[in-house]
């Protein structure tokens, strides 16, 4: 090694490609191990909730996916901003690679939320502030993916997507608070999502393990996806044609 680590080295697709493969493999391993532990804990170790019964166990999927859905949008906006300012191709590719995972996380959060809401609230869907803003977040993801998909020129797609992400990230707090005030004006929140949030330690531990599992999964999937994007965009370069998996 010697000397300090040169981070800029990995801003080139050619050097990042093998690194992404390594990170992807390690993250997959971590994700699988944590998922096994987390699912075992959430289904067999965590006690039954005295108020919500067994149905509450869905939060071990729901809460991590909801957290990831919001976090991934911020990470995408971060990469998009970097890509726009420094004109680094890889940053934009990262933003593009993260988008489907973020959309899936949002969808899982909405879907599991509906499953949880039916037994607890008696309705698949209520116009609660959190639900509504999660739905709008889903629309924002879909808009980003649709915009990127309809632009053929990769460079323009990257930069247009970056502008959209930055506009979206400014709007998210505005949307969240407007939805919140809209909701409180129309009706008092009949059921609070955080009701009885003094969770037992074991539940919290299981949820945190699941969160890290989701985190590792998101990293793994986006690394594999960014590898595919790199290959697609750099297919005419020499280093790609010299890769062992391409020559085969």
């Amino acid at each position: 090694m010697g000397g300090r680590l040169n981070l800029y080295k990995f801003s080139s697709p050619a050097t990042f490609y093998p690194l992404a493969g390594k990170i992807g493999k390690i993250s997959t391993l971590i994700a699988v191990v944590l998922l096994v532990i987390g699912l075992y804990m959430s289904f067999f170790v965590a006690p039954t909730d005295y108020k919500q019964g067994e149905g509450y166990r869905i939060i071990f999927i729901h809460v991590p996916s909801a957290w990831m859905s919001m976090f991934i949008y911020l990470v995408m906006a971060f990469w998009a901003g970097i890509g726009l300012v420094f004109n680094t191709r890889l940053s934009s590719m990262m933003a593009q690679a993260l988008a489907p995972t973020g959309a899936i996380m949002t969808f899982i959060a909405l879907w599991t939320g509906a499953f949880w809401g039916k037994p607890m609230w008696g309705a698949w869907w209520v116009w609660d502030a959190r639900l509504t803003s999660e739905l709008i977040l889903f629309f924002l993801y879909i808009g980003f993916i649709a915009l990127q998909g309809s632009i053929d020129d990769a460079r323009r797609a990257d930069r247009a997507g970056a502008v959209l992400l930055l506009v979206g990230v400014v709007n998210i707090p505005i949307i969240y608070f407007s939805v919140k005030w809209w909701n409180t004006l129309h009706q008092g929140a009949s059921v609070s999502v955080t009701e009885g949030s003094n969770m037992s330690t074991i539940m919290l531990q299981a949820m945190l393990i699941m969160t890290f599992a989701f985190w590792a999964y998101s990293i793994a999937v986006s690394m594999y996806r960014v590898r595919a994007i790199i290959l697609e965009r750099e297919k005419d370069t020499r280093w790609v044609s010299e890769l062992p998996e391409i020559r085969r």
């Binding site: 808009g143 649709a146 915009l147 309809s150 247009a160 959209l164 709007n171 407007s178 939805v179």
Partner: peptide
Amino acid sequence: LTLGLRGGGVLVSLLVLPLYIPVLI
């Protein structure tokens, strides 16, 4: 953003309508 794209009209609604929500509310 959607200037000169295929199906720009439909796309613009997908991009813009979520951002319109606060004004609507």
